[in-house]
Structure formats: structure tokens, C-alpha cells
Design a binder for these strands. Structure first.
Lengths: 147, 147
DNA sequence: CTCATTGCAAAGATTTTGCATCACC
DNA sequence: GGTGATGCAAAATCTTTGCAATGAG
């Protein structure tokens, strides 16, 4: 067994995450920690983020786009990823644990849980889109399908 | 608009994925393609995988652990990730699109969809676990929590 | 005193990209 | 011939890790 020792850096990282609701990346945590610990290293940040999520004091969020994000709230809940500004926010929604049962119906194995991310446009991006009707974005590129 | 030109490499990559149901990573695709195209480059593989998923001929799967995986079947369906052997398999399960509605109930913005991964033990790993009762794994490491 | 933790730097793993050449249309 | 695709290598991103020094218990 490994015994944890107190570390001011780890405590500060945990506190920092607890005070944010935007689910920062390791790099954002690092940048912010440098105010308090000018010499803190990225390695220390990564090590502590990994440790804190292992012991369940924070949660790791893999949205599938860009770097991992971290949530100061380790209690299970769902997240929303905006396809416009790439922000990640918490969702307050009813329990949907029943989908584990549905998933297990035709499956040879044990379903223990799931992770899910909802996506779309956040309030701000939705309003901005309505305001500007024209304007092309990268995503409008169209490929002509041959064959 | 961009016009696609035929490429034997792209076609081979698509065919390769269509013939597999284990959702390979870019590197696995690359390794396998070298049989047919000894000089194919990883860059070409990545470019084609990105292009094929953009035009909807394959699907990209971000499980949150390790590299991205690719699915030759672009039709929406759910995946299972085994926490034992890290394999990724398809799930045959009922429609659960209603969770988008639930997610949108208390949300200021537009929910357009979701991605979900179910996890647990696949049939093989579940049986192996039952067979060997003892045996410690990394995951059994316990941290004594202080403070 | 012991060993977990840190800072630093180097290394890893994965993915992207610039560019000259090649190949499809 | 024009331009999209390729191969190659270099670079960019994100994350992990070896090691000597530091600090908590």
C-alpha cells in the first residue's frame, strides 16, 4: 500500500478545480498554478491530476476533442460539449442509468457503466448563429463524393 | 468546393475497415496497409481516415483511452469498451435517442446529439476473472487517504 | 531517517503539416 | 495540364518518466 503525503501543490490544484466550473485542461491548471507556485512543473500537475482522479477527488473528462479536461466535482453527472466554442459544461438532467440495462440485453459480458457526452450549441453560440445568418466556417467545406 | 479524386490507398483503407469489426487505430491500419502498399506513409493514413470520417464513410471512435479508433460502419450505433482487454465492440441495443430530450430539459442551448460508451468486462474477460480468483493487478493499488 | 513529492529535462506517444513528386481526371 | 493525393520528414501536441533534490511524517 502506498501512503499519501500532504503536498501544497496537490491541495492547490484541488482547490483550483473546485472553484471552476469550466473543466480546465492540465495546461490551464498549470498556467494558473504558476501564480502561486512560480516553479511548479507540468509533470507535477499531470501527476497530481492523475492521482486525484485515481482516488476519486476529481474527475477526468475525455471529450474526444483536444486534451483531457478535469472536473473538481467527482460526483457522477453528464457533460455538454459545444461544437461552436468547444466549451464543456455540466448538465442537470434526470437519471438515465437504465440505459445500462438496455445495453446489456444482447451482450455477452458485464456492462458496469457508461460515459456520455451531449453535444450541440451552447446558449451563447446558438444566439450568435441566429444573429449572423451568412458567414461560412471551415465546417461548411463540402466534398463531392465520387465513386 | 473540393473535388475528391480516386486513390487506391483511400479505397484500400476503407475496404480494410469494412472487413474488420475490432475498430482499429490509425497505426493498426497503417501496419496492415503496408502489405499492399509497402511505401504508404502514416501521414497518408491519417489524412485518409480524417477525410473518410468527414464525408461519413467511416466513423471515428474516441474512447478516452489511448489512440482514436475507426469504424468501417458509419451508421450510428453504440460501443462497448472492455476495461480488461481494452477491446472495443459493437452493441446491439434499442434506440435511446430520448436521452437528448432529457438532457435538454434544463439546458440553455441546443442539444443535437450525444456519444456514449458503455464499459465493463467483455465475455472473455468476465470468464477469465471468475476462473482466477486471486491475482492482483495494477488497479488494486490502494492509496491511504490523508486529509 | 524514510520515502513520497517536486522540478527539470528528456523521452514517448499520437497526430499534423510543409513540400516536392506523383497520379487521377 | 491542373490540382488533389502521396511519401517523407520534420514539427506540433499532449502526456509520461528518470533522476537528483526537497519536504512531510
Amino acid at each position: 500500500m502506498t501512503t499519501l503525503k500532504y503536498s501544497r501543490q496537490r491541495e492547490a490544484i484541488k482547490d483550483f478545480l473546485a472553484g471552476r466550473k469550466d473543466h480546465p485542461t492540465a495546461d490551464t491548471v498549470y498556467t494558473n498554478m504558476r501564480g502561486q507556485f512560480p516553479n511548479i512543473s507540468l509533470g507535477t500537475v499531470y501527476r497530481n491530476l492523475a492521482l486525484l482522479s485515481e482516488i476519486g477527488e476529481i474527475a477526468k473528462i475525455s471529450t474526444g476533442e483536444g486534451a483531457e479536461r478535469f472536473d473538481g466535482n467527482p460526483v457522477d453527472h453528464y457533460h455538454f460539449v459545444c461544437t461552436g466554442c468547444h466549451s464543456v459544461s455540466d448538465l442537470e438532467m434526470p437519471e438515465i442509468a437504465h440505459i445500462n440495462i438496455l445495453a446489456g440485453q444482447n451482450f455477452d459480458g458485464e456492462i458496469k457503466g457508461h460515459v456520455a457526452y451531449f453535444y450541440g450549441l451552447c446558449g451563447d453560440c446558438a444566439r450568435k448563429q441566429k444573429a449572423s445568418h451568412a458567414k461560412k466556417s471551415k465546417q461548411d467545406t463540402i466534398f463531392q463524393k465520387i465513386r
